[in-house]
Design a protein around this nucleic acid. Sequence first.
DNA 1: TTTTTCATAGGACAAACGTCCTAACCAAGG
DNA 2: CCTTGGTTAGGACGTTTGTCCTATGAAAAA
Lengths: 188, 188
Amino acid sequence: MGKQETRDRIVEKADDLFYQQGFEKTSFADIADQVGISRGNFYHHFKSKDDILTAVIDRRMEKTKGMLKDWERETQSPAERIGCYIQILIANQAKIRLYGCPVGTLTAELSKLDHLAQEDAARIFTLFRNWLKRQFQQMGFTDRADEHALHIVGRSQGVATLYQAYKDDTYLNKEVQDMKSWLATLTA
Amino acid sequence: MGKQETRDRIVEKADDLFYQQGFEKTSFADIADQVGISRGNFYHHFKSKDDILTAVIDRRMEKTKGMLKDWERETQSPAERIGCYIQILIANQAKIRLYGCPVGTLTAELSKLDHLAQEDAARIFTLFRNWLKRQFQQMGFTDRADEHALHIVGRSQGVATLYQAYKDDTYLNKEVQDMKSWLATLTA
DNA sequence: TTTTTCATAGGACAAACGTCCTAACCAAGG
DNA sequence: CCTTGGTTAGGACGTTTGTCCTATGAAAAA
C-alpha cells in the first residue's frame, strides 16, 4: 500500500476516534486497531500524537470548506445558505446526540489541556463564522454581519451541548425552528 | 486530621482539577500533589476514581443548590432571579475563558467516555432548569416555562463554548445583553 | 500504662501509555 | 538475476496509570 493511502486511513480513523472518545482518551493502540496496522508503524507517518492531531484538524478544515462550497452550489440565496448551517443540527442529530459538536468539544478539550493546537481547532469555528458573515453581508447587514454570524454559531453550540446532555428531540427541533424564525424576522 | 476533613479536601481539589484539566486527564498523582497526601492513601477514602467523580458531582450539586438559594434571598422578583443566572457568564468570566462551563464540559466528556455518571452530571443542568422553570412560572408562563428555561440554559452554554474558543469579551457582553433583552421583551 | 483503632506513607503490581529501534518484507530499477 | 528504497510488524524502552498491600505512627480507649 502507498504511503499516502495509509496516512489518509490513519487520519480518517483518528478523526472518528477523537470525535467519539476525545483526544486524550484515544491511544495509538485504538487507532492502530481501527486502521489495522501495527503500533510501531505510526512513526513512519507521524512523528507524534500531536502530529496526528494537526493532520486531523487539517482534514476537518478541508471537509468543512468542501461542505460550505456544496451549500453554495445547492442554494439560491444567502438566507437559504444560513438555513443549511442551522440544519446541520438535524442532519447530524444522531452523532451529536452521542458525541456533541465535533468542533466545540475538541476546542473545549484542547483548551483544558492547554494544547497548542487549540487555536487551530478554533479556526474551524472561524471558517463557519466568516462564511456566515459573508452571507449576512449579502443579505444587506453590513455592520452587524459578524455579530449575527457569531450569534448563530453560539446558539448552535448551546443546542448541541444540551441535546447531548438530555437527548431530547423536542428541544432540538424547537430550537432549530426558533433559530429559523429569528433568521426570518431578521430578513423582514 | 479527621477522616471527613481529608475526604473533603480530596473532593475539593479533585473538583478543581476535573474542571481545569478534564476528568480523564486528571490522575491520582495530580490530586495527591494538590492535597498533599500520598497516592496509596486514596483508597482509604474512595474505592476508585469513579467514586471520587461521584463525590465531585455531589459536591457540585450541593454548591449549586446553595447558590440558587442565595439568589432567592438576594432578589425581589423572578425576572431578577433569571437575571442572576444570565449574569453567571460575567461573574465566572475568567474561569469560563480558560475552562468553559463546568457543567457543560463535564457532561460532554462523560458522554464521550460513555460513563455511567453522565446522567448524574446532567442532573446539575436539571437543577438550573427546574429552578428557572419555577421562575418563569411565577412570571405567569404556565405553558412555556420549561421551554424558556431550557432556552436560556442552552444559550448560556453556547456563549460559554464560543467564549472559551475566542476569548472575545465583546462577544460575551453582547450576548449577555441580548439574553437580558430577550427576557425583558418576554415580560412586556 | 497498655492496648486498640485507624489515618497515613510508601511501595508493589500489572497494564497501558507514547516513543523509538530493528529486522523482515516487497516492489521497482538495475 | 540481484540490489536498492521504503513500508511494515513486532517488540523494547522508560514512564505513568489505577489499584492494592502492608508497615508505621499517633491518637483514643482500656
